[in-house]
């Protein structure tokens, strides 16, 4: 969480309007708010998380992201964030284009399914990977679309989405060093900053 916050903070301007999709308990928005004076809102569907947001004084809107963002006007946010949740969406590509319609810029973080530990589990053990980033068994996982760092870059190219910045998070060794040479193999969490 700290790494993600550090990487995305430079991309968020003070006094800007920020929408955090699947904002969870609101702690990311709360942390951004502490550093930058933002007009922030979170969308969330989990009842317990919504209560936690209210307790923190975070603006939270109960909304199912699979129903889209049609209730938001074009370009009504400066930044739209979706942290570790795009892989849980029914139509990630449609949500991504909705995000780019509603926000000037988008920040997306996701677990990289192409990480070597996931590949090894699938290749050598022949079983669906369970890693720190992908911590669920296949039968209970909320993640319904697995994709890699490379997959996501290809989607951006195909949809003519501009990648303003990206950042690869890897905490273990030797990943920290090797992520620069082989990002798709050594990135645990990928962070992208996009616009149209």
């Amino acid at each position: 969480m700290e790494k993600i916050l550090d990487s995305i903070l430079p991309w968020i301007q003070s006094n800007s309007r920020v929408l955090d999709l699947a904002c969870g308990d609101g702690s990311l928005l709360e942390k951004i708010q502490k550093v930058r004076q933002i007009n922030g809102y979170g969308l969330e569907i989990d009842e317990k998380s919504i209560i936690e947001c209210i307790g923190k004084g975070i603006n939270v809107i109960e909304q199912d992201l699979d129903t889209g963002l049609s209730n938001f006007a074009d370009n009504c946010f400066d930044s739209i964030i979706i942290c570790e949740a795009l892989q849980e969406m029914r139509h990630p590509n449609l949500l991504l284009s909705e995000m780019l319609r509603v926000g000037r810029e988008c920040i997306i973080t996701f677990p990289n399914f192409g990480h070597w530990s996931a590949r090894c589990q699938l290749f050598f053990l022949g079983k669906m990977p369970v890693t720190r980033q992908l911590s669920y068994q296949w039968y209970e996982t909320p993640n319904i679309h697995f994709f890699t760092y490379r997959d996501f870059k290809m989607l951006c190219e195909a949809q003519n989405i501009r990648i303003l910045h990206y950042y690869c998070i890897a905490e273990a060794y030797p990943d920290v060093y090797l992520k620069k040479i082989f990002p798709n193999l050594f990135t645990q969490t990928a962070v992208f900053h996009l616009s149209l």
Binding site: Y41, C53, I54, E62, N71, F72
Partner: peptide
């Protein structure tokens, strides 16, 4: 109610919305 919340967000007001 969603219309109310939409207008509030457009206006930049602090709002929490639950159904």
């Amino acid at each position: 109610s969603r219309e109310i919340t939409k207008a509030l967000i457009t206006a930049g007001r602090d709002v929490t919305h639950a159904e």
